[in-house]
């Protein structure tokens, strides 16, 4: 996963064709397996396409995607606002780091889904508990990533910054933050992936919109497995696009700076 330089159009086309071929083979195998086994409820690829068209004509496809994106955006931004400063504090202040890092390590293995009952208890139903759960799931990994990024800033940059007379605030803004951007971007990327994973799970419980809700609702309302799988495909595609967007941003920033981040 290293950041490769932007490729030539012809090469990109060839690469795209190759990944499309992989996808095609998988869809074919899926169809063939269902054709031969004759499993009753599972939808074949074509049914899923029709299901997707149905969602589109009913006008709910974009609504569900937007609802999920809305929750992810807020949960993720809240996590960034809390976790990045917290991570820097943990990484640069030994005393705070020693006091708080074990807590974060303890919270991290608790599945965010385990928080669902408490989230509902505190925040009721609707968007707030879902956003809260995304926030909870995103904060520990991002804080740890920011902590490591801050720790890994080479001492010579910090010394140089102090030598030029920077106080703590300026040192943070003009040295620590820019120096740790490449590592931070990796953490942001991974965390956004986690946030997206979690939103779907959170939506299966407490809300009546979003891709997670679409999946649960389609099964409950008449075993519409074509719509279930359509929801799954939408989750995959949207997640992929989100990831690509972050990588694009990262590449734009890192280009030329020889600060090769772990993003591809």
């Amino acid at each position: 996963m290293t950041l490769a330089p932007a490729r030539q159009p012809a090469v990109r086309l060839a690469l795209a064709a190759r990944s499309m071929a992989g996808l095609g083979v998988m869809v074919l195998a899926w169809d063939l397996a269902l054709y031969m086994s004759g499993a009753p409820l599972l939808p074949r690829p074509w049914h899923v396409v029709l299901g997707m068209a149905e969602l589109l004509t009913r006008g709910v496809l974009l609504k569900h995607v937007a609802a999920s994106l809305f929750r992810v955006t807020w949960g993720f931004l809240l996590a960034v606002a809390v976790a990045v400063p917290l991570g820097f504090l943990l990484g640069r202040n030994q005393r705070v780091g020693k006091a708080l890092a074990p807590l974060i390590h303890l919270l991290r293995p608790i599945s965010p889904l385990a928080w669902i009952p408490i989230a509902i208890l505190w925040l009721g139903v609707g968007d707030p508990p879902a956003i809260f759960i995304i926030f909870l799931a995103s904060t520990p990994p991002l804080a740890l990533a920011a902590m490591n990024a801050a720790r890994n800033v080479p001492q010579v940059y910090v010394h140089a910054g102090r030598n030029f007379g920077l106080g703590p605030r300026e040192l943070f803004l003009r040295v620590l933050l820019p120096a740790s951007v490449p590592e931070l971007l990796v953490g942001l990327r991974l965390t956004l992936g986690i946030a997206w994973l979690v939103v779907v799970a959170a939506e299966m419980i407490a809300v009546n919109s979003g891709l997670g809700f679409l999946i649960v609702d389609s099964r409950n309302a008449g075993n519409r497995y074509d719509l279930v799988v359509a929801g799954m495909v939408l989750i995959g595609v949207t997640g992929l696009l989100l990831d690509r967007a972050v990588v694009r941003l990262a590449r734009g920033y890192l280009r030329g700076r020889d600060m090769v981040g772990d993003a591809s």
Binding site: P154, V156, Y157, H159, A160, R162, N163, F164, G165, V175, P178, A179, V181, R257, D258, M259
Partner: peptide, 20 residues
Amino acid sequence: TGPDPRRIFVFQERGVFPWL
């Protein structure tokens, strides 16, 4: 008592800021 801009340290070339 501490680092001072009147006296600047020059490290090996790794001291330049790669983001600038």
